[in-house]
């Protein structure tokens, strides 16, 4: 019998061993290190710089005066908001658009996820495909496609006019309706998948059991399915809300109003007022965080017992 007791690890392994020793947790740390370093360098530090710039003073010829400390940017944004000026209207518009889109998105996503869950075979594949394909298409294109459809001379108005449902074209685009539909189309696929992934784990038998106990079908779904998919609904709500309040492409292309995202771009690239842009971003992030927290608390409350009666 050949004995092969001698170990001959490759020199590469030997170098690795010298570096990382033998402890499993040190090896784990070494493997996680690149990701942690990346998140620190490209996410955490940049955010501290954003915070730092938001408390620097502005400058006439530079984007900001480095090395200075000042709360001017915050006070000017807050004063502007409190006097119901431009920042106030931008803030309200962003939140109204975000809130409205979120409510409609989550409602439709629940229904669509349910339809995917209940269907099978080709229909199921087609419905899933219809969710995944837009997800993989750039939001520029997703938004752009609504222009020929929704403009006053667009396809939808042509149809409405020819059916005599309206006497003159409705101006969806540019306008808040167009922006809302565009934004809805951007976030809907994510919301559907978030809810569907939870729904797919539910046993249909529980709905049958509810019906067996005398609930009508829509009612049994609302009473039994909705509470169970609450984790998915919460994810869908948070994503829809965060992205819609901060929406840029849909309102930029399909409406003439300013959302905070669009205005920040102007502040930064056109006006070169870095501290104000940074301060406004920070304020909006804080407001979004608070409202998301409130939404989360409300939904969690409903999570256990969804009593409509």
């Amino acid at each position: 019998m050949t004995t092969t007791n001698t170990h001959d690890p490759s020199s590469f392994d030997r170098i690795r061993d010298a570096v990382i020793g033998q402890s499993n947790s040190r090896r784990a740390l070494l493997l996680m290190a690149p990701l942690i370093a990346f998140e620190l360098l490209v996410f955490v530090i940049p955010f501290f710089i954003l915070l730092r710039i938001s408390v620097a003073s502005g400058s006439a010829d530079l984007p900001y005066e480095s090395g200075t400390w000042s709360l001017d940017a915050y006070s000017s944004v807050i004063e502007n908001i409190l006097s119901f000026d431009l920042f106030w209207s931008i803030l309200v518009y962003s939140f109204v658009l975000g809130g409205a889109v979120t409510i409609v998105t989550v409602g439709i996503a629940l229904f669509y996820a349910y339809a995917i869950w209940r269907s099978n075979g080709l229909v199921k594949s087609l419905l899933l495909f219809s969710v995944i394909l837009p997800l993989l298409t750039t939001l520029v294109i997703r938004t752009y496609a609504f222009t020929p459809l929704l403009s006053p001379t667009g396809t939808v108005n042509d149809i409405l006019l020819s059916l005599n449902l309206v006497s003159e074209p409705i101006q969806f685009v540019p306008g808040i309706v167009g922006a809302g539909i565009g934004q809805l189309y951007i976030v809907l696929p994510y919301a559907v998948l978030a809810i569907y992934s939870v729904m797919a784990t539910i046993d249909w038998d529980i709905v049958e059991a509810a019906r067996d106990l005398g609930a009508s079908r829509p009612r049994s779904v609302v009473e039994v399915v909705v509470p169970q998919v609450m984790p998915g609904v919460i994810v869908a709500t948070v994503i829809s809300f965060a992205w819609s309040v901060g929406s840029y492409a849909a309102p930029g292309l399909l409406s003439e109003n300013l959302t905070f995202a669009i205005y920040i771009e102007t502040l930064l690239l056109t006006d070169q007022r870095y501290p104000v842009a940074a301060a406004f971003s920070v304020i909006m992030l804080v407001l979004m965080l608070i409202s998301t927290g409130v939404l989360f608390a409300i939904l969690n409350r409903f999570g256990g017992d969804f009593d409509l009666a």
Binding site: T2, T4, T6, H7, D8, P9
Partner: peptide
């Protein structure tokens, strides 16, 4: 295991 110990292909397959 024989491969990791650097045994040649023929030898390790035979063993």
């Amino acid at each position: 295991g024989l491969k990791m110990r650097g045994m040649s292909k023929d030898d390790r397959q035979k063993r």
